[in-house]
Design a protein around this nucleic acid. Sequence first.
DNA 1: ATAAACCCTTAACTCAACTTCAGGTCAAGA
DNA 2: TCTTGACCTGAAGTTGAGTTAAGGGTTTAT
Lengths: 132, 132
Amino acid sequence: MTIKEAAERTGISVDNLRYYERIGLFPEIPRNASGMRDYDEMSLHWIDFAMRFKRGGMALEAIREYIQLALQGEATKPARKEILLDAKNDLEKKMAEIQESLDVINYKLDTYERKCEPITMDMVNAWKERQH
Amino acid sequence: MTIKEAAERTGISVDNLRYYERIGLFPEIPRNASGMRDYDEMSLHWIDFAMRFKRGGMALEAIREYIQLALQGEATKPARKEILLDAKNDLEKKMAEIQESLDVINYKLDTYERKCEPITMDMVNAWKERQH
DNA sequence: ATAAACCCTTAACTCAACTTCAGGTCAAGA
DNA sequence: TCTTGACCTGAAGTTGAGTTAAGGGTTTAT
């Protein structure tokens, strides 16, 4: 499969596929006789795997580290588990933060319906006043 | 309250407080006679408000826009509501993605317990082989 | 056999969000 | 009064994550 087809299947741009590979976000893709990338299902599997973490907001460096460890085999399992536990922690924290933001937004949208400001204009005016 | 105290209370660095103010993420902070920032409760309120959105992953530019609109009063309500609805949408999408990542992580952690690899070593070896 | 459409690499550029720096002002204690 | 430490501004530098450009091979349809 050409890089263009892989781009279509994954929804990642051709340039980004090359970029991610270069920084080690997934293993080097097989090449054909004339040096062009030839993606197979295994390639797509790795890409999907890495992208799942990326979409969760994990830093590319952490993903790279995990993948490189996975390629080194069994011995790196404890290290990988560590990375996953850290990631889980981050994601749970992020989840809670997003929920908090959503709560604020919903509260505000609700008060908009009621035609009264969550930060009331008199608060704003008081503040403007103070700035004289 | 000095900028240092404000930094301690908000958990934002002194430099970042100045930076955020400069880009309009919250209104200009009151100054004392000799031109130094003098934070009050209202200042902290705005900071907290902006940071809630930031933690949810909203772009600083969007937060800036919202705050500037809020300072312009009633007439900007529809525009602000629009921003909030967009933000809500983003956050809900992000929430779903994070949940997906968490599912994958939990699955992997679970298979680690069972001492079997989610991406099995024979898969990896097959791939390495192919790279000859 | 040549143009069009792909592919390759290396390196430079961009953008958001910080962070550091240089060069100065101000305030409180010894 | 002199020093030390916190504050100020404006500008330059850094980092992470791409994106674009330059210069060159390859494949395919005409």
